[in-house]
Amino acid sequence: MNTRLLGAVAALALLTTGPAGHAADYPTKDLQGTIMWGAGGATDVVARAITPIVEPLLGQKIVMVNRAGGGGAISTAFVAARPSDGYSLLFGAENPQLHKVLELSQIDYADFYPVNIMARGVAVIVANNDTPWTSFKDLAEDAAKRPGEIKMGSTGPGGLPHVVGSLLKTVIDFNVTSVPFDGEGPGITALLGGHVDFMPSGLSAAAEHIKAGRVKVLAVVNNEELASLPGVQPISTDFPGFSKYLPWGPFYGVFVKRDVPDAAKAKLVETFKQAASTASYVEMMEGRGNIMMNIAGDEADAFLKKWQSTTAWVLHEAGATKASPETFGIPKP
């Protein structure tokens, strides 16, 4: 206990490790971590949970700064403008892969090297308890009967509800009114208060509310049932048209600029791989309903490309893009 107390005093007096020894190898000074989303969000938690594990392995501190805004475009622009020395990390989610087609930014993960994609999430469709539906099929039929009258919670262009909503529009005739909120948390809040009727959401944001019975889950946006949600139908059961787009979901990773020296990339890949395998981290991530990936380099690049091609074309077919994926050489899935 006393050591912990000393630690706290040290924290508040001096939150830094003393002068760093000048080792010959990377890294020789503090790293700077840029988080794509605000404090307390899903990306923030993923990033801040892994840094304390990475720091001792790297032997340097990572100073974390949230740089939210512009749907993630602020953070990518910032890190892309930093020197390519491997001291600037980007902790990001899936969003930049849509920035080109939404005309938010010309920078996406093609400009970055995936040090590690820690995990991906699964989307679910949740509804307010007062609604009459018991499955997604009910909702789809109701929506066909009363076009535009049902309110869907969303989080703005390129966000998960927007993509899932577009996916629904592509596969079935699905006309609902989308009301955008500042994030999944505020969206769920509005759902609980009955200000929207249903919402596609990441499982991590909805899991506890499902468990407590404060919202009901209509479907899992996946090909198979999830172990954590027994008895909830995968969306492809009633609507097989979905299966070619699945699995689909958000993901969280750490990136550096493409042209960072190989030695630094290798060191980072090795460290993050080890950190993302730590039992406590895995347990925390899975507890939030994420599926661990822990992939890097070429494997991660392939994943990023596939994700981009699927999602960008779905949005394009639903008429939700500003520019065709073709313009940017994003291949059709």
């Binding site: 007096a13 001096l14 830094t16 700077q32 501190k61 100073v63």
Partner: peptide
Amino acid sequence: RLVFQVVLPEAE
């Protein structure tokens, strides 16, 4: 810089 870890502008 030291207590609150704010990265202040530093000359390259």
